[in-house]
Every structure is written in C-alpha cells, then in structure tokens.
Nucleic acid binder design. Structure first.
Lengths: 136, 136
DNA sequence: CTTTTAGTGCAACTCGATTGCAAAGATTAT
DNA sequence: ATAATCTTTGCAATCGAGTTGCACTAAAAG
C-alpha cells in the first residue's frame, strides 16, 4: 500500500495539507465517499477546498468518480495501475439501504460491442440492491 | 406501435392532457429525455406538472429513468414487455459530445455474479463516448 | 347537483455542486 | 533575503436540478 505522499509524487501533484488529509481519508475507507462524507470527516477543512482537491485528483487519475444514482457523486481511489481507461472498467454496487457504494473489482465487465461507429470513452456501471450487511 | 392512450389504458393510468403530451413527446424521441428537455419542448406545460407526471409514469412502469452522469436524470419509454426488473437490464450510451442518451437494447448484459449475500435490485449501466453522428 | 378526490400551475425552497474573490502560502526571479 | 508571481485555501454567494406546499380547477363518485 502506498502512502499519500508517494501517490501524490508519482502522479505529480503537489503535496499540501488539504490534499494529504483528503487522500488519506479516501485511502482509509473501503467505500466510495461523497463530498459530504469527506466534509463531515474532516471537520476543519472547507468544502470548496475539498471539492477542488477532488477535481485535481480526478484530473490526475488519482481517484475516479462514480455516479451511483444516490444524487451525490462519490469518489474512490483508483486501484494501482488504474488509468481510468475503458480497460479499467469495473462495476459499482450501491446499497439502497445503507447508501454505501462499493467498487466490485472482482466482477469482470465483458467486452462491450457497441453499435457501429460508436466510440467508447468510459463507463459508469452501477448495480443497485442490498449489500451483505443489509441483506438479512 | 401503441398510441399514448392505449399505453395509459394498459398501465391503468388516467389520461389527462399533460400526461398525453408528455408521453407523446417521449414516444417521438429516439433519445432519453431530461425534465428540461421535455419542459423546453412543451412550452406551456409547467415543470412541476411534468415532473409529477414522470414520477407517475415511472411508478406505473411506463417509463424508466436513467442516471447517465450528465447531472440530469433522463427518461425513456420502456420497451414493450419491459417490467423494469433486473431481468430487463440494458446498457445506455451517453454521448459526451451531443449529450444525448441512447438505450442499447441490442447489447446483452451478462449475468451479474455479485459477491456472496449481495442482492440485486436494479442496475444502471451507462457507457460514455461518442455516438455515430459525433464520431467523425 | 353536491361532495370528494385527483391533477395542475405557481412560487418557494432544498441541497449538491460550483465560482468569485481576497487572504495566505509557496515558488521563482532579482 | 526580498520582491514579484503563481498556487492553494477559506468564505460567501450563486447556480441549477429536483422537490414541495398550497390554492385552484377538473374529474369522478355519491
């Protein structure tokens, strides 16, 4: 597991206090986090600073964003080696009970045969239901 | 192709002026429509009336909604026989150039093997890229 | 015809996302 | 080291999609 500092260095993003704590928080969570989640966890950091940090991280392929249909964009640290390319596709699972979003890295996404002349850039595949903890 | 009146009758939704024009508009488009799209097309119909109409349609399985990551929920008429069940899954294609959303009925969605004890309820699978018209 | 229920239009409001701006901090040039 | 420049941060304000309260109208039931 890389440290925050290593990741920022590798991705050529300047290290700052806000960036370090935001990235650390994301690394410590096993679920994708919304801006609000992060804001609540980091009580003394401004929302817009976190927002801009997330944009920076996304541009530099440190994290990827997920639209899970909950109304809030969520963010998760890319797996090592992820380029956020169509090749790196994975499903997400959104639990409609606890509102958590999981990255399903183990569930393979089949090759997408798009209609003629359509060009794939990225994908956002969200499966909804109940997670193991809520399905009792 | 069924008429608006037939669809409403089959789905046991009372026919009104707003419902007829909204459904007609959706039937006439080959792309999924946002609330704003519909509002713009139907200049003299109130947004909240359209909104409530869409909710009614969705509850009664006349249309399904799509979160395509554009920030606006889009709506499309269900294919005949669609129950909006996990079984009726299909991919959506969102063109990042023209912002249109297509239903890819012909692209099969594989059986989803979720982690142990996860329960599938529905899915929202959006592929982004360039549509045939914009990929030139 | 009267009563009740459902649908509509308007305005206001919610809330996540985003931006303008000035202060603080870091970097580069002198 | 100091001044000039660029970047990051915090605060407040704004935006826009979605949603709701409420009064009015239309439709259905009695």
């Amino acid at each position: 597991m890389q440290t925050e500092e290593e990741i920022l260095k590798i991705k050529k993003v300047k290290n700052t206090a806000v960036r370090t704590v935001v990235l650390r928080h994301l690394l410590n969570q096993e679920k994708a986090q919304s801006l609000k989640d992060i804001e609540n966890a980091l009580a003394y950091t401004d929302r817009s600073s976190i927002f801009r940090t997330l944009k920076t991280f996304e541009e530099n392929k440190i994290i990827h964003s997920i639209e899970d249909g909950s109304g809030m964009t969520k963010y998760a640290v890319c797996a090592e080696g992820c380029n956020c390319d169509p090749k790196d596709l994975h499903y997400h699972f959104y639990c409609s009970n606890c509102n958590k979003t999981f990255c399903l890295f183990d569930l393979p996404v089949p090759k997408l045969e798009l209609p003629k002349n359509f060009k794939l850039q990225q994908a956002n595949m969200v499966v909804k239901g109940l997670c193991d903890n809520c399905n009792k």
